[in-house]
Design a protein around this nucleic acid. Structure first.
Lengths: 193, 193
DNA sequence: CGCGGGTTTGATGATGCTCAAGCCCGGTGG
DNA sequence: CCACCGGGCTTGAGCATCATCAAACCCGCG
């Protein structure tokens, strides 16, 4: 139940079994059914979620009702509406499950306790945020300078497992294009090589 | 020299004057002339920079030689090629000064020492990364769902001071459009209201 | 069998890019 | 003092990319 998370933490900040026991108590297992919400836009988001299995997504909805996917999370990834988790206020993202998923919940109050009692917690979350930050930063670069086709190819490389797992229109939404455009891009690619 | 930074740190992790003295020694003041590089793409990036005055930018260059601005940094902001600072490897961004600037440099080796000796350093950088992460995440949302005009209006709101400070084509680059398009957008906007 | 979600295809149109030229303005040197 | 230069901004014409709207298709499932 906790071994994926333990490995994730341990990779960044080595912990003794005893130290880990102090961490473990703060995480609450939860199952999500496909299409079930973890957070809905406008709620207070007071939790971080760590994915053991399955796949979640966080997305915004624009004025015309179109969804735009901000992040996917699969096994061994964290997901949250961090902005709101950190600063308070209403969630700007909804988070739901693209398939049945097992996750671990870390409530904000629990994380605060963890941060105040476990000496290495700040470092773990610092390292975590650093990788999240660099990932989003690279995605911005890609949105600014790559064509839709290049972004799609990069997606295939970066998330090979996701491609098999989730419907194509979700990938289109993540890439910032319509499902029709992605379909045409794929058609072109299948001709070329 | 150090008071802007001290205020920035103190806001996130309150420090006694004595604690601060231990931090201060790690930061090295530096002046950059307009158009001077702090980092060039392909170098090893082994520093974080805190801006006291002036304005820096970090950007990538695409295959055709076009620049794409990933981040601006003005007074009270940090800037770096974080990806590379954290993970090692060659910088994917160049960082240079858009005007004469005063900055404070924190070398990676210094930060490592700071993190290992100052108890609150991990927390400070965790909080810093969290705000950086949420900012980039919001920018991704905006690139996915807003039109160029909406992104420009949002930029005006978010960075009112920058608009006066830097040439318009730099803003266009940040928004992911050509200078010509930004010019036309501004023309349309000036008609409307 | 028919329904529904997902994907594909086609026709058309909007948005923003490219290429090219002109303009504005501040700085420099004759 | 003025001519000239260059960077930045604007404008125009044509074009590429991707969105929109609409329809058809595919396939798993009740």
């Amino acid at each position: 139940m906790y071994d994926v998370l333990y490995a994730n933490v341990n990779k960044r900040v080595p912990l003794t079994k005893k130290e880990w026991a102090a961490w473990e108590q703060f995480f609450v297992p939860k199952k999500l059914r496909k299409r079930q919400f973890l957070i809905q836009e406008g709620e207070l988001c007071r939790l971080l979620a760590f994915v053991n299995s399955g796949c979640l997504r966080s997305y915004t909805v624009d004025a015309r009702g179109e969804e735009h996917i901000n992040q996917f999370a699969i096994r061994d990834w964290w997901i949250s509406d961090l902005q709101n988790y950190v600063a308070g206020g209403k969630a700007v993202h909804s988070i739901d499950a693209l398939e049945d998923s097992d996750i671990l919940i870390l409530e904000k109050s629990s994380r605060d306790k963890l941060l105040d009692t476990a000496p290495k917690a700040d470092r773990y979350f610092r390292l975590l945020q650093e990788s999240g930050f660099t990932a989003t930063s690279r995605r911005i670069d890609s949105l600014l300078k790559d064509t839709a086709e290049e972004r799609y190819l990069a997606f295939l490389k970066t998330y090979p497992s996701l491609v098999e797992q989730i419907p194509q229109h979700q990938i289109a939404s993540y890439l910032g294009i319509t499902p029709q455009s992605l379909s045409r891009i794929r058609k072109e690619l299948s001709k070329k090589p």
